[in-house]
């Protein structure tokens, strides 16, 4: 009985050895490994997976936008860099007494989340007195480096004033931006 089993196993082993090669086995094994690794990368729909994840509340585009002229979050201050004139004896769009607005400035657009429209905004520095020092605000939406000077908020825009001392900055609305 034992001899019969031995013969049977020997015959089976020899048949396998005759029909397959070690290289063939290694190649097949390698392909299986590679396939298993790449399978998760295939462009299959993962919609189900996304649905299974807990949903987070939708964050608004500008979560802290406000209409407070002494707050740096005021929507029309979207690219201002300096002291807010509203905290320095002026308003969000007018210079404090004793200072003069810069005749040159940089002009961009700010999005008003209140009505969903974009507005053209002129950022003017108020000049002629030393720095106000109150309500420092630095926001840089759309601001560009010095090589695009007309879109740079680090420049002292009081450079064209008779007295180039910088005091504070205002944000003047020029109109609604169209297409």
């Amino acid at each position: 009985m034992q001899q019969r089993i031995d013969r049977l196993l020997e015959r089976a082993s020899r048949r396998v050895a005759q029909r397959t090669s070690r290289r063939g086995f290694l190649g097949l094994f390698g392909a299986a490994l590679t396939g298993a690794t790449l399978l998760p990368l295939l462009p299959v729909s993962r919609g189900g997976q996304a649905l299974a994840e807990p949903t987070s509340p939708k964050v608004p585009a500008s979560p802290t936008a406000s209409d407070d002229p002494v707050s740096c979050d005021y929507w029309k201050y979207c690219a201002i860099d300096g002291f807010l004139c509203a905290c320095c004896g002026g308003s969000s769009s007018s210079c404090p007494p004793g200072t003069t607005p810069s005749p040159i400035t940089w002009i961009g657009t700010c999005h008003n989340p209140g009505d969903g429209r974009d507005y053209i905004v002129s950022y003017n520095d108020c000049c002629g007195k030393t720095s106000c020092g109150a309500c420092s605000c630095n926001r840089n939406e759309g601001e560009k480096p010095m090589y695009r000077l007309s879109l740079n908020n680090d420049a002292n825009w009081c450079m064209a004033n008779d007295n180039p001392n910088y005091h504070c900055s205002v944000s003047v609305l020029l109109g609604v931006a169209g297409q």
Binding site: P103, T105, I107, T109, I120, S150, A160, L174, G178
Partner: peptide
């Protein structure tokens, strides 16, 4: 923009002024 008036504001008026008057000697 497709509107030249708006392009003037956004691309030119910062230095040349809203009316194109410029700044004397600057």
């Amino acid at each position: 923009s497709t509107q030249p008036a708006q392009n003037y504001l956004l691309f030119c008026a910062g230095c040349h002024g809203l009316t194109g008057s410029g700044v004397p000697n600057k």
